[in-house]
Design a protein around this nucleic acid. Sequence first.
DNA 1: CTGTTAGCGCATTCAG
DNA 2: CTGAATGCGCTAACAG
Lengths: 356, 356
Amino acid sequence: MPNLSDVAKRAHVSISTVSAVLRGKHTTVGITELCAMRVRQAAQEVGYVPNYHARSMRLGRAHVVGVAMQLPGVSETGSLYFNGICGGVHAAIQDEGYNLMLIRNAGRTGAVDRGVMGLRQRMLDGLIIPGRASNLRDGQTLAEPDMRELLVVVLDPPFQTDLPSVALDEVAGVALAVQHLAELGHRRVLWLGPDQWGDSPTTGREQAFITAAWDAALQGASIRYADRRSSDRLANAAQAAQAALSERLTQDPDFTAIVGYNDVVAIGAMQALQQAGLQVPQDVSVVGFDDGPLAQLIAPPLTTVSHRLSDIGLQAGRLVLELITDAQARRRPRGQRLVVSPTLSVRHSTGPARPR
Amino acid sequence: MPNLSDVAKRAHVSISTVSAVLRGKHTTVGITELCAMRVRQAAQEVGYVPNYHARSMRLGRAHVVGVAMQLPGVSETGSLYFNGICGGVHAAIQDEGYNLMLIRNAGRTGAVDRGVMGLRQRMLDGLIIPGRASNLRDGQTLAEPDMRELLVVVLDPPFQTDLPSVALDEVAGVALAVQHLAELGHRRVLWLGPDQWGDSPTTGREQAFITAAWDAALQGASIRYADRRSSDRLANAAQAAQAALSERLTQDPDFTAIVGYNDVVAIGAMQALQQAGLQVPQDVSVVGFDDGPLAQLIAPPLTTVSHRLSDIGLQAGRLVLELITDAQARRRPRGQRLVVSPTLSVRHSTGPARPR
DNA sequence: CTGTTAGCGCATTCAG
DNA sequence: CTGAATGCGCTAACAG
């Protein structure tokens, strides 16, 4: 592999001249255009490519951002989630010449810890941690003192944190769904979701739903099913939801609409309704949450809150870049939080409330 | 950030001693265990972490493998595909201390070209290219002379190549499906798939199907629909397949089983059949290809050929590692090809052929 | 058994 | 306007 000195020899100039020309600094320093041409020519001829490591060492910058992903086995929900996030992050950093490293859990070492290790080694300039997906409780290293020096951004942090973060406005998303149903004349709505996530007694999403329903003067109830990490396999989650709702449907339904914790739950709900001989959306409207690929594929196509994962990733990527380049930004108040607003994808699983 | 010299000072030894101890070479060189302890202690105290770039420069190894992914927009099929692949690759390389870099297309530069760039810069030790997903035709750089020096492994190459590759045994997969149907007594089978992929007049998968059917003494026909990259959105692909089959179903069906190009196509087929009043699997059996998350979720659960993406990734990762570490392996006959055997996930979309 | 020395390839300062 | 000199942090060969 040719280096600067090879190019210099071939162009009959010194190494620093080559460096200056190739970095485009020749105008500032004042190098003959003729000479610059010769240098470029020579570089071309020997097939010169700058050595990444030497460059990074000198510049003190890796030009790499890591995304930590804790995937227990072959997760299906995870695939979609991470690809959305990574797409956004990449879109944000590619133009600045940054690259994306995937940090996964390996053996007993969690993805977060591995990411922090990468940061310490200076292999990474910044690290993005999806709060929900990467098991933060395993991230021992996050608590260590020198963390203040390290650049970490958390996505959808499931708890209070000092770290800068980007989150989906879950409250706004749920409100969108509730408002949509209210406008369609629904008065009694059902929540269908897992009983807990992590250690909160109920999901934040459900809390948001209840509040939104309350504010819209809707009545209703919640069906909560046990979610022992089963949500990892889509089919299991759908079945859990379906079973939970089916049980309820042995009585007459006292609601005209259902909001599901996510798309998969909503699909399970639709299956339960159909089994009970109820039509969607004529008898009962169903709203999902996530706007994954399933939403469009299912019959009828699902009305669902769009997560805009790639927007979250994009914001996170931009934030990391800003924090890397702008030393000042680092000193800003801890715990700065960016919020991304969701949208509602209205499709055919919702319709006017059936008059009772 | 502390460096070797800081540790050396604190331990009152020389830099090379510290290096030797920390690399575990102290026994070979012959360093007092007492001294080694002191060094480790000192390293701990100052919070020493080796600098990745300096190390890599010296060692001439990046300890990073790239995976090129060409994703047009937000691809849904791609998500599953790449996560499967990346999971396998990561599993193969993590134990050897290698990391995984995601190389996406950026602007007008394809993922493959960016990956090759990374290789040249020595940012990457090896590159894995999913042949089908990353638009190899855009990979101009792959043809350049110095490519022989660069370490590239192609997954499922859609054409003949000199590059080492790992591929799913598509022929075996299709044969599995055909054999399964033959055993169930089916005599007339239908192929449903896109009309072309890249520039071959029909997909290799279809060719394999026809041959397998021929060998099993089955009769049948092919329905080919136009696939203008529409397969990128699952819903579109499903609809194209559904439409194509529905048209055929205006006549009486002259088959008792359908094999779809992939799961999504199979799902489209099931929808078309159901609309035509045909039951799956009582009237017609349906087999898919991919074993994606949809296969289990749909009703009835789909019998499908399991791609084992993560196995492909695993093999590819191992191959890359072998090629990196074993210089000899590099000189092996060009175009070495590893093959991964698929399996058939038998579920409920297939049953005995309806007697006619 | 330990310390000194010599680069790896690059960017930059400072003389010429 | 150009080139020689310096050091980033690390490893490995070689003296001491």
